[in-house]
């Protein structure tokens, strides 16, 4: 995907030069290995700041809401599905957007790479299917790209954007041989007591910095329920019940909307895999309603419609 950079710059430059848009939202090179910083470009001559590689994991749909400009945005498969969700939920207008689709082969999990590397990482580069890690002490390690992808990317079945005005490259082949729900089935198989302990361990490191919530394009409420003080729904301390309530309720608010873009897990400073919560709801929506979020503009979300053949018995 590193080869996309030239095309990314070219498209951004053209769109700004011919005044198709007022700003382009993309990534610029970060100051850290395996990190890029979301940025905006308003002048054609700044387009060369833009980059594209396996470190563009932040979901750019998160940067589209509440803006007045006409915007061009680069969108991976998951980003594009969140843009569709934004449009369906009336958070952005389709005609204010130029969507530049980026067929994606997955984003690198920087913590996974760091944990599999001895010594401090100085730089990381990609060449085709390889990720090359250069160490501070002069050594280097090489990984197969597929072995160091973010958890959600390794299991992704929608790598190509579902909505776009143009593409930076040809569409990529979708993965078909993935077992998307293996981890969820494991949790479902636990008995109540074991499951409770599992969640206690999972959420124990949480410091309530809300990086998961804020990295999520779905979390756009003007005031989140955890911040609300009249009435106050939730204690603000580190009490386990409050921490759990935050995580569970946040996940439920994403039911039928989550695209498993992995932004929450990627943002977490203490490495909690809170995707296990959203994925369960994603699985339920898929199995009960054959629903996948953000796939088409003309479909109403699963929790937004009623069908007489609803599989749940209680409603009959």
């Amino acid at each position: 995907m590193i080869a996309y950079t030239d095309k990314v710059r070219q498209i951004a430059r053209r769109l700004l030069e011919d005044c198709s848009v007022e700003m382009v939202i993309g990534f610029r090179k970060g100051s850290q290995p395996m990190m890029n910083e979301p940025c905006f470009i308003k002048k054609a001559e700044d387009a060369d700041q833009l980059v594209w590689d396996g470190n563009c994991g932040i979901n750019l749909a998160n940067y589209l809401t509440g803006r007045k400009e006409k915007i061009a945005v680069f969108a991976k498969g998951c980003d594009s599905r969140n843009i569709v969700t934004h449009i369906v939920e009336n958070k952005v207008q389709r005609d204010r957007l130029v969507i530049i689709g980026v067929p994606c082969t997955g984003m690198i999990d920087k913590r996974l790479v760091a944990s599999q590397t001895e010594g401090e990482i100085e730089a990381v580069s990609e060449t085709g299917d390889k990720v090359v890690v250069k160490l501070k002490d002069g050594g280097s390690t090489e990984f197969d790209r597929r072995q160091v992808l973010q958890g959600n990317c390794a299991l992704c079945v929608h790598r190509n954007p579902v909505i776009y005005d143009e593409l930076v490259a040809d569409l990529v082949e979708e993965q078909t041989d993935v077992d998307h729900w293996a981890d969820i089935r494991e949790i479902e198989a636990m008995d109540v007591e074991k499951r409770r302990r599992f969640f206690e361990d999972l959420l124990a490191p949480c410091i309530r910095c809300y990086a998961c919530r804020n990295a999520c394009p779905l979390c756009y409420c003007p005031t989140c329920f955890v911040d609300e003080s009249r009435p106050q729904w939730l204690g603000k301390g580190q009490d386990q019940i409050d921490v759990h309530t935050f995580h569970f309720l946040r996940a439920f608010h994403c039911a039928g909307r989550c695209t498993d873009c992995g932004a929450c897990q990627r943002a977490c400073p203490v490495g909690i895999n809170m995707r296990l919560l959203t994925k369960k709801l994603e699985k339920d929506c898929f199995e009960l309603y054959q629903w996948e979020a953000g796939m088409a503009l003309d479909q109403r979300p699963a929790l937004d419609t009623y069908k007489p053949d609803d599989p749940e018995g209680f409603i009959k």
Binding site: P38, C39, F40, I58, R208, Y210, A211, R213, N214, A267
Partner: peptide, 14 residues
């Protein structure tokens, strides 16, 4: 430019 990318989480401050 500095603040654009910020998602306003508390990671840095915590």
């Amino acid at each position: 430019d500095v603040s654009f990318a910020c998602i306003n989480c508390g990671t840095c401050t915590y």
